[in-house]
Design a protein around this nucleic acid. Structure first.
Length: 650
DNA sequence: TGTGATAGCTCG
DNA sequence: GTACGAGCTATCACAC
């Protein structure tokens, strides 16, 4: 049993309010030694009065004049811990306005500063210029927030505030503590303090904004947010220590908090779309959908909603009498795989497949992107990156999601062609080649795999040679590729056989051959699984953790956890590396005053927009940064490509 | 009219 | 009953 977990564990130091932290830790952490330690500790703490202690309260104070505001703000200096939050008319930090802001410097009270409430009979408010002055003072202190990317983005975009690195962000702290848990303020308040936050919906009726809320109600709501953020900072900071993950405080400080500003900058830049191209694509897709609709009705002998899987199932498997097993909860399965297997059974099937893909491009990509691009003067669209959106550490992108723009089909790529560089600039793409397999080589130190990467071989071909011999390797390269992916996903023989269209027995033999060829990979994967079983978590290369409640899981969950844990090591570590690269790339471009900028991240790829004359030179520098971001047991290799549109790249 | 579940499809 | 991680669109059933 490890003992370092107990190192800082001091029974005497627990206070009553720790009860909730402890409960939370017991519930949320599947760190078994930790759990036992906490349970021991609970015995030593008198919890009999805890119900009383649970009722936490605060005082909400409205600062509705310059004098009142600065009387409080003047006491703030650079060492003051301040929780800060803004209230706005909406969620778009480019256009929506600040209605007020709140802050707290202790766990007993919080202040609200009304700025732009707008309703009949509205009382005193603070002038926006005075409010900005106060905010500047607050941002010079140790500022803590819940999702500060939003507040800072608003302040940078519209209120002339200069870039600051936050002292802490409770959403990110909660995510680092447990990436699988809910990280919203309401959920955290409930979890750590058993406290119910006032729901936003009760305050703002539909069709209205925060500006319509009366200042008295707003004062309570906004102050509550700042106060709870202040409280949570303390709780999360302590929870991190209790869970013996103080090193993640450093990771947060060095990586995650500066990274907030990288994301804000990318979100603000957006990426340009070719409106004409998108328009003609949209027209073409619409016409094709119309044609296909008619043809499908004719071939089926009836009109129905092709988009409805239920109706389609009835038509195909009852009216037309095609053979299809009931597979879903609601009826027949009609997914691409099923339809592909019926391709030769009826001539309508290929039409439906084409209808599906065309309709997808139209409704998910062409139409919404065109609509967004038209709204912007420069025809640029702006995504929102989520820093705490995944369990592994990857980013996600939404509204719109720019991480799943089509590339695999030819027609799909035409959507990508609508993403263009602005006049005089080029789009530059640099992507990590096989980063997850390189991490597998790095972690496992498998001689054969390391050697393949050091020699710069085609890794799937090298695997194929190992598995099937020189002669068959070429023909079976795709098998090897599937196996390599499968390894990273924690595959079983069943899925591999499905994937390759071979028997389960053959798949088993391939897997067996793989582990014989790469014995240290086998033992490394087993080590990961042992960790999950014994200590309940796995770690990425930056020591971020993902927890699994293996002990209390059902059989099926246990199997899932083992696969997820294996994948997390590779996917999460890859996410760590590209995050570091993005920080480096951003500071290089800024410090060297390069006429170019980072626009998008798609997991293992970065997209830049760079002035034409210097793009070659800049691409080399960026490639160098990415390839040398960390020294591993194998080289990191990036491939570079550039063009006028995203569709041309790669 | 809004919401949550389901099915399907897009990407790395 | 098992390949990982995401987000968006549309339908459908149900509640208000």
């Amino acid at each position: 049993m490890r003992t370092d977990v107990f190192k800082d564990f001091d029974l005497e130091s627990f206070r009553f309010e720790d009860k909730n932290y402890l409960t939370c830790l017991i519930d949320e952490f599947e760190h078994y030694e930790m759990k036992r330690a906490i349970e021991k500790a609970k015995v030593g703490v008198d919890l009999s009065d805890c119900d009383e202690e649970d009722k936490i309260e605060f005082e909400a104070i409205c600062l509705d004049s310059k004098e009142k505001l600065f009387k409080v703000v003047d006491k703030i200096d650079k060492n003051t811990l301040v929780a800060f939050d803004t209230e706005t008319t909406g969620l778009d930090t480019k256009t929506d306005k600040m209605v007020g802001f709140s802050f707290a410097t202790d766990n007993e009270k919080a202040y609200y500063v009304p700025i732009a409430h707008s309703y009949l009979g509205v009382t005193d408010q603070v002038d926006i210029d005075d409010a900005i002055e106060a905010i500047k003072v607050i941002l010079k202190a140790k500022v803590v927030g819940q999702n500060l990317k939003f507040d800072l983005s608003l302040l940078y975009n519209q209120y002339g505030i200069e870039e600051v690195v936050p002292f802490a962000d409770t959403m990110i702290m909660a995510w680092l503590l447990n990436a699988g848990s809910k990280v919203g303020l309401d959920a955290l308040a409930k979890k750590f303090f058993n406290y119910e936050m006032k729901p936003f919906k009760e305050l703002v009726k539909k069709g209205e904004t925060f500006a319509n809320v009366d200042i008295e109600s707003a004062t309570f709501y906004a102050s509550e947010d700042a106060w709870m953020t202040f409280m949570l900072y303390g709780a999360l900071d302590r929870a991190m220590s209790l869970a013996s993950i103080d090193h993640l405080k450093e990771e947060a400080k060095n990586v995650e908090y500066p990274f907030i500003n990288v994301l804000i900058a990318m979100e603000r830049r957006g990426i340009k779309l070719d409106i004409e191209k998108l328009k003609s694509l949209q027209d073409m897709l619409s016409k094709r959908v119309e044609e296909l609709t008619k043809e499908i009705y004719e071939l089926c002998g009836s009109e129905f909603n092709i988009k409805s899987t239920q109706q389609l199932g009835v038509v195909l498997f009852q009216h037309l009498g095609l053979k299809g097993g009931k597979k879903t909860k609601t009826g027949y399965s009609t997914n691409e795989k099923v339809l592909n297997s019926l391709k030769n059974e009826h001539e309508v099937i290929p039409k439906i497949l084409e209808y599906r893909s065309t309709q997808k491009l139209l409704s998910t990509y062409a139409q919404p992107l065109l609509k967004l691009a038209k709204k912007d003067k420069q025809n640029r669209i702006y995504t929102s990156f989520l820093q705490t959106g995944t369990a592994t550490g990857r980013l996600s992108s939404k509204d719109p999601n720019l991480q799943n723009i089509p590339v695999r089909s030819e027609l799909g790529r035409s959507v990508r062609e609508a993403f263009i560089a602005k006049e005089g600039y080029k789009l530059l793409s640099i992507d990590y080649s096989q980063i997850e397999l390189r991490l597998l080589a790095h972690f496992s130190k498998d001689k054969a795999l390391m050697e393949s990467f050091k020699q710069g071989l085609d890794i799937h071909m090298a695997t194929a040679i190992k598995l099937f011999g020189e002669e068959e390797a070429e023909a079976k390269r795709s098998y090897a590729k599937s196996v390599n992916f499968g390894i990273l996903y924690g595959m079983g023989a069943k899925k591999l056989s499905d994937e390759l269209g071979i028997t389960s027995k053959e798949a088993k033999e391939i897997i067996k051959a793989y582990f014989e060829a790469f014995p240290t990979i086998k033992s490394f994967l087993e080590k990961i699984q042992e960790d999950v079983k014994k200590i309940g978590y796995v770690e990425t290369i930056l020591k971020r953790r993902r927890f699994f409640d293996y002990e209390n899981a059902t059989g099926m969950q246990k199997a899932s956890f083992l696969r997820e844990s294996v994948n997390t090591v590779f996917q999460g570590s890859a996410a760590d590396l590209i995050k570091l690269s993005m920080l480096e790339a951003e500071s290089y471009l800024k410090e060297e005053q390069i006429d170019g900028a980072m626009l998008l991240q798609i997991h293992d790829e970065l997209i830049f927009e760079v002035k034409e004359e210097i793009v070659q030179e800049v691409s080399l520098k960026l490639k160098y940064i990415m390839e040398n971001i960390m020294v591993l047991e194998v080289p990191l290799v990036c491939s570079v490509s550039l063009g006028d549109s995203w569709g041309e790249l790669k």
